[in-house]
Amino acid sequence: MTHPNFSSLTPDCVLNALEHLGLRSDGRLLALNSYENRVYQVGIEDGAPLVAKFYRPARWTDAAILEELAFVQELAEREIPVVPALDIGGKTLHHFEGFRFAVFPKHGGRAPELEDRDTLEWMGRFLGRIHAIGALKPFTQRPALDIASFGIAPRDYLLANDFIPPDLLAAYRSVADQSLDGVRHGFDRAGKLQTLRLHGDCHAGNVLWTDDGPHFVDFDDSRTGPAVQDLWMLLSGERADRVRQLGDVLAGYEDFFEFDTRELHLVEALRTLRLIHYAAWLAQRWDDPAFKQAFPWFNTQHYWQNHILELREQIAAMDEPPLWQS
C-alpha cells in the first residue's frame, strides 16, 4: 500500500477534507506548530474556528489512532481537562485522499508556570486523575515504552543508516552501549512495576494553561508505560530544585492515584531513552523538508559531538541515588 506524503497536503486539500465532512471553511487557514503531524487552525463559516490534525502517513495504524482518540474521549467523559476529537457523522477518524485526520475544537491557553508550586500541585492532581483512568484497562493497539523500542531500535537505526560521522562512530557505539546498560540497571533496580495508559509526552508544550487550570493536549505519543514517564519531564534545574518540584507534583498526584516511589529509579533511565529516541526520530524524518528547515543544527559534527557528551553525562546521572534520597 502506498501512502501520500505531506508535500501533497496543500491548503486546498485541507479545506476540501473539511468540506467533505460538511464543514464549510471561510478560507482562513493557519498552520500550527507541529512536525510529526500537520495541524491547522481552520476558520469555519458561521462558527468558531476548528483544529484539523492530519496524521503522518504510515506511522500509526487506524486502530492505534482510534485507540488514542478513544482514551482521550474516556478522560473527557470523566471531566478531566483534555480536548477530545469531534464526533462527525459517527466517526472521530476521517480519511481524505489517502490522509487520516481528526477535527478538534479550538482551545487556547498559555504555557504553565512550572516554577510555581501551586501550578505543579494542580498539574499533579490532573495527572493523578489521568493515570487513575489509564490504569483501568490496557491499550491493545498502541506500543509500550520499553528499552527495545526506545533505545535499541533507535540506536540500531542510527548505526545502520550512516548518520554518525565516521570519526565519531566508535565513540557513539561505545557510549550508546554503556547508556543502554545503565538503563537496564535502572529498570532492574526499580523491579516489576505497574504499567498503564499514559499521555506519553507530558512536557510543558503539551499543556495549555488557563485561569481554570491545565488542559492536556496532543496524546499522539500515548502508550503503555510506568507512571513516572508523565512526571519527570515537568522537573528541571538542580537536584534540590527537582526534589522540591517532585514533592509539589506528588502532593496533588497522590490525592487521586498512588505513586510507587520505586519508579524514581527510572527517571534518568527514561531521560536517556528519550535522548536516543529523539536523535533517531530526527534522523527518520530527515527526508521531510519541514525537518531540515526546523532543525538545521541536526546531523552536523557539532550535534553528534554534543549528543555523545549528553549520553556520557547520563551514564553518570544514572548512577546517582534517586531523587527521594536527597
Rank of each mutant, 00 (worst) to 15 (best):
E68I: 04
E68Q: 15
L69A: 05
A70R: 15
F71V: 05
V72E: 02
Q73H: 10
E74C: 12
E74L: 12
L75M: 02
L75Y: 07
A76S: 15
R78W: 01
E79V: 10
E79L: 12
P81F: 09
P81K: 11
P81I: 10
P81W: 09
P84G: 08
A85G: 10
A85K: 05
I88H: 06
I88W: 09
G90L: 02
G90P: 09
K91Q: 14
K91V: 01
L93N: 07
H94E: 01
H95P: 08
F96H: 15
E97G: 02
E97N: 14
F99R: 09
F101Q: 02
F101H: 05
F101K: 02
F101N: 07
A102N: 02
V103R: 05
F104A: 11
K106L: 14
H107G: 04
G109K: 03
R110T: 14
R110W: 12
A111M: 13
L114G: 09
L114Q: 13
E115D: 15
E115Y: 00
R117P: 08
D118G: 15
E121T: 12
M123T: 06
F126T: 13
G128P: 01
G128S: 02
I130L: 07
H131T: 11
I133A: 13
G134Q: 04
A135R: 14
L136F: 06
F139V: 03
F139I: 07
F139K: 09
A144L: 08
A144Y: 11
D146L: 05
I147M: 05
A148N: 07
G151K: 05
R155E: 05
D156K: 11
D156V: 00
D156S: 04
Y157P: 07
A160I: 02
I164T: 03
I164A: 00
P165T: 04
P166R: 13
P166G: 06
L168W: 00
L169H: 15
A170R: 13
Y172D: 00
A176Q: 11
A176P: 04
D177Q: 07
Q178G: 09
S179V: 13
L180F: 00
L180A: 03
D181K: 11
V183P: 04
V183L: 07
F187S: 08
D188H: 12
G191W: 01
K192G: 12
L193A: 05
Q194Y: 06
Q194K: 14
T195W: 06
T195Y: 07
L196V: 10
R197P: 09
H199M: 08
G200W: 03
G200A: 11
D201M: 00
C202E: 01
A204K: 11
G205V: 02
G205S: 00
N206R: 03
N206G: 09
N206V: 04
V207N: 08
L208G: 04
W209T: 10
T210C: 02
D212A: 14
D212Q: 15
